[in-house]
Nucleic acid binder design. Sequence first.
DNA 1: GAACTTAACGTCAGTAATAGTCAAAGAAGG
DNA 2: CCTTCTTTGACTATTACTGACGTTAAGTTC
Lengths: 154, 154
Amino acid sequence: MGTLADHIEAYIKRMLRESQTNSVELSRAQLADTFACVPSQINYVLTTRFSLERGYVVESRRGGGGYIRVGRVPVADRYTHAMQILQTIGDELEEKQLNDILACFRDMQWISEIEMRRIRGIVQQEVSTVSQGKELLRASLARALLFWIVKSAE
Amino acid sequence: MGTLADHIEAYIKRMLRESQTNSVELSRAQLADTFACVPSQINYVLTTRFSLERGYVVESRRGGGGYIRVGRVPVADRYTHAMQILQTIGDELEEKQLNDILACFRDMQWISEIEMRRIRGIVQQEVSTVSQGKELLRASLARALLFWIVKSAE
DNA sequence: GAACTTAACGTCAGTAATAGTCAAAGAAGG
DNA sequence: CCTTCTTTGACTATTACTGACGTTAAGTTC
């Protein structure tokens, strides 16, 4: 006997399975009405169950004709490993750790030597623009760029 | 389905694609009539969807024989243009500005619709992990990812 | 050619329709 | 108990659309 959030999650996932396009468009208010709950409950379900890490992208628009679109991003098996490594990146990332990860990606031939240098360059460039929170920014940038590459390779 | 504004936007973009000259001339009153709306709705669409930030120029003239001309911003060298846009990103970047840049990149066919969503997803994901400096982080992430794409396309 | 008329387009503020955020209360499980 | 997950609702932000009123250009009349 699941919670309300579980039911809403299942409902959206069923819609996704039934859609040909791998994405569905919802109306927050209408969905909330269907499940007789407050609209913000829908946001709760989306943030807890349909995160990028779990393989979903959520877009939305407010105002008249607003909507919420939930899309499935396929996660290929051969990149599961790469994703696992990305998930080891914590809040902060030292330059040395970044180099380790880049070396790992290069060794796995997920990126080339040139791309490795390019990533280092971009990250260094961006990190040098801030005076505080360099490790935080480095972690975000590394995750973002490597995630992009992993996803693009699919 | 989309809103009225979305339809008018699509209509104008189709006209633009079909025109060889990279620009189209409209009659506000006539267009409003076609879509059965008030004329100012056309202005709304033009300011929200065809801004300079998104890579369009709009000229118009009032009075008898008045017109509205919508054109794509002239792009001599696509790479240069992309870099120029990236350089307009300052220290901070609001979500709205990011959307404009992404829309512009998509309209220039530098990125696909799917890639646009992916970037939005990655940036949202990363930005949501911090409590402060969201605009700062968004600016860095956007620059890094888009720079990566531009460089990779060279 | 000044005044008037007509035909465009522009602005702005208000209303309605959506969605997002956040903190606090409640429930469930250890 | 204590922690973590769920649920709620008050408040906020964004987007779409309309209509009244303003501005500009071209044509017409005398």
